[in-house]
Design a protein around this nucleic acid. Sequence first.
DNA 1: CGGCTTTGACCAGCGC
DNA 2: GCGCTGGTCAAAGCCG
Length: 277
Amino acid sequence: MEVERSNRPSVDLNLSIGSSLSLCFFPGDPQAASDYQQQPPIGILKLELDRASEENKKLKETVADMVNKYSALRSQVSRLGTPNAANSSDGGSVSPATNLKRKRDSGGEKESTSSGDELNWNSRVREDKMKPKISKLHVRTDPSDTRLVVKDGYQWRKYGQKVTRDNPCPRAYFRCSFATSCPVKKKVQRSAQDTSMLVATYEGEHNHGRQAHQPPAAANKIPAVEVGPVKSTKVDERLESSPELRRSLVEQMAASLINDPAFKSALTAAISGRMLR
DNA sequence: CGGCTTTGACCAGCGC
DNA sequence: GCGCTGGTCAAAGCCG
């Protein structure tokens, strides 16, 4: 989608190992980069950390903005009744299996296939107007992890589990347990094609916010760079005298970025933008 | 003890 | 009517 690409976050993929971190942390500032390469004191490392946090924050804002624009665009596409535009697994698509019961309830037509992608577009659009909002979320997990848990910041109560015909992996049914009046339901099932992928299907919209005590798992979390206490000057000295410690610190920072979903999203968008160009 | 998970039973819609 | 299927219920058990 062009809009997505044009709003792509500014993640530069032209990373060369030779340029090292200095070029990442001091873009357009060769003097600072040079100083850093000669001897990076703890103050500069802190500066780098702040810079990385700031960059991370901007990236997250960009991603959030992209999501909003994408949603708006999707709704426009839906209104125009254009097929293929909102199809597939990137979230927001309607699962016919999910709606089967409701379709039956409303006397609607039945698909000739169990696969969701062949669903007639017009009927889907028609259904969207009278069905609760349905969205899909794909989460990659450890295939050996048998729990059907998708952490999204809400509190869920499992009320059923079922093995479905088209997928040997069981499907778990959840209800939002934060508010008894909350109508939202969630179905979680491992993808038949990719067992490391969990597919969560949400029905309806929450009539409450997220719990304060349970933040959306990592979704809104600024990555915690575990550099330990920085108050001591002894730490500075240790860092200065130990290249390994410095490398370890850099690795931790890199790891925290890698583990940050917002950073991953931005990176994915940047990579796909590059490959699809 | 309250909240949650597990799991078999049950229900409704549909095709044959 | 019967069997299949997806979705839900509810009793029992577990856990903090």
